[in-house]
Design a protein around this nucleic acid. Sequence first.
DNA 1: ATTACGTATGTTATCGATAACATCGTAGAC
DNA 2: GTCTACGATGTTATCGATAACATACGTAAT
Lengths: 336, 336
Amino acid sequence: MRMQDIARRLGISAMTVSRALKSDSSVAPATRAAVLKAIEELGYVPNQIAGSLSSSRSGFAAILVPSLNNPHFSETVLALGNALHDRTMQLLIGNTDYDRHKEAELVRAFLARKPEAIILTSDGHDPRILPMLAKAKIPVIEIWDLPARPIQHVVGFSNQLAMRGLIAALIGEGYSRITYLGEADDADTRGASRRLGYCEAMAAAGLAPRLCSIGRPPATMSDGERGLETVLAAYPDTELVACVSDPLAFGVIAACQRRGWAVPGRMAVSGFGDFEIARIAVPAITTVQIDAGQIGREAGAIIGEAFKARRDAMPAAIIRPVPALPCLRASTAKAG
Amino acid sequence: MRMQDIARRLGISAMTVSRALKSDSSVAPATRAAVLKAIEELGYVPNQIAGSLSSSRSGFAAILVPSLNNPHFSETVLALGNALHDRTMQLLIGNTDYDRHKEAELVRAFLARKPEAIILTSDGHDPRILPMLAKAKIPVIEIWDLPARPIQHVVGFSNQLAMRGLIAALIGEGYSRITYLGEADDADTRGASRRLGYCEAMAAAGLAPRLCSIGRPPATMSDGERGLETVLAAYPDTELVACVSDPLAFGVIAACQRRGWAVPGRMAVSGFGDFEIARIAVPAITTVQIDAGQIGREAGAIIGEAFKARRDAMPAAIIRPVPALPCLRASTAKAG
DNA sequence: ATTACGTATGTTATCGATAACATCGTAGAC
DNA sequence: GTCTACGATGTTATCGATAACATACGTAAT
């Protein structure tokens, strides 16, 4: 069924049907009512593929996340989806699985569908995507970090500074034998940034870095449970395990509790991200607070601004930092 | 840039370029190599919108989930995405937010993009989507439950039977003052099914149901933390809180621990779904085991079968049950 | 009364790839 | 050596909506 069929049925032209479906175009109220009624009765669903080809507006934006399973990214995706919904745009979601090659493949596949904007989460990209993105001439937004050399717009924070701040605060609390537990793979440069931040904070306090790693990202609760062994094998005198993320920290805490070790007391643990679990867990987990939803909303706002700017010309790159502050909780409390 | 441009550059026709990009069509190896080289050099990305309109194959499937934030659904989505990737299909993801109206809106919006299959997660649908789905003439797969009146294909399990089985097992362990904690809103009929299963198991044991509810779905850890109060206010003698999901159960356990109550011992808690947290938490949480990934993979397989069947005609509805068995863990262990 | 303009609608061309059909050459069969 | 068949490629029509332009009519301004 095509617009043509609706039109013929009403003795009007397809163009009028098309116009009746756009709220801003001029159609007599009676005509519009008749069209909508016919569409409803016939259960007609317009073919947006044809519409997109003709109008060269696809009506969606694409977002690539490293892991949909990560509640943080899904919260960002959700918030962005809602923001776009208000602009009657849909969101196409891609999962890169922390893999640059897969990301490049997805970028190509998505660009083939002509998104009106694209949001990238990982910051270390396959260099081949840059020319493709440039040619696409659409807003590109990198989120969840502050890349050294941004492609275009950015909404994020410095993972390095954030982790450095957290570790510095913990050193301030009196900890010194702090061991870092994170991913081995440098493909996740957010993880690498955090590790670097840890090293800097240690160095600033005159302490040697103590690094341990689980496998490749994402860092899961199960990784944390196993990770405690790794940490103790390498640095038996560890008094605080600084984890690359909250779920990993939760796993470490669980492993401690299984051994009958008090957290804090026998062992302190910190995370990163302020996942829900960090607030609910007993003990509550010291972490770095990030508002994942805000990142999504800001990205949505930038898309809106970019479209407005395109009309007025002058699409300047927007760098929008979001806060990422240490939040000390029970898991690293010093025995009072 | 169009295929035409690539073609002209090589002195061939656009059709040959098109063919060079399909691996199964007959093109001279030298020609194909030249085309691929030119495409690479020019950074050409085919316009799939035009391709879809022409070939009437959009190359993607759509899935609607109630909540992307729920790690279970995101695992299903992930597994399905991988399964489809092998068929060079992409996955368009929609979030219904446990809202039938929103679901209907998304179904319409997705169908406008002509997906080649559609997967629905919630089982209580807005009746208006049925004619639209029927007209679309594509495979429809309902997942995560066994609907009383399936639209077409199904991959899932009976939430009602699963919860009944779990509660029966717990009654078998010697519990009787079991209070159910779940969502209030009937829009989430999976939750309603589980509640019903609980009621049946209690009735079968001659016990009166003890129902408490948090707000509308999804049930979060925070809801669980608050939920303990609700339970104790209504049924102060509760010895086991049976929760609609694992995160909720975790919240209840955390609330108990904050009060200094031993779990189990002073209070037992069960969940549903076998989320990672159920295995890692201390104590590990008694739950119903579901393989969320398997549901996604099976759905992917059904899409494959449906396409094969379409060629051979005869698209019979496939009902594929997946296991959902009680798994008793420490959180409901009786003091030995 | 006439011009001008705006609203409601129709007509035609177009978006870019691909299906379907047409053509040409050449390798192998007899 | 001629015929057949198929592999490689070109040509044309098409998918369905919409942009752009065209038309017709009515109303307000002069």
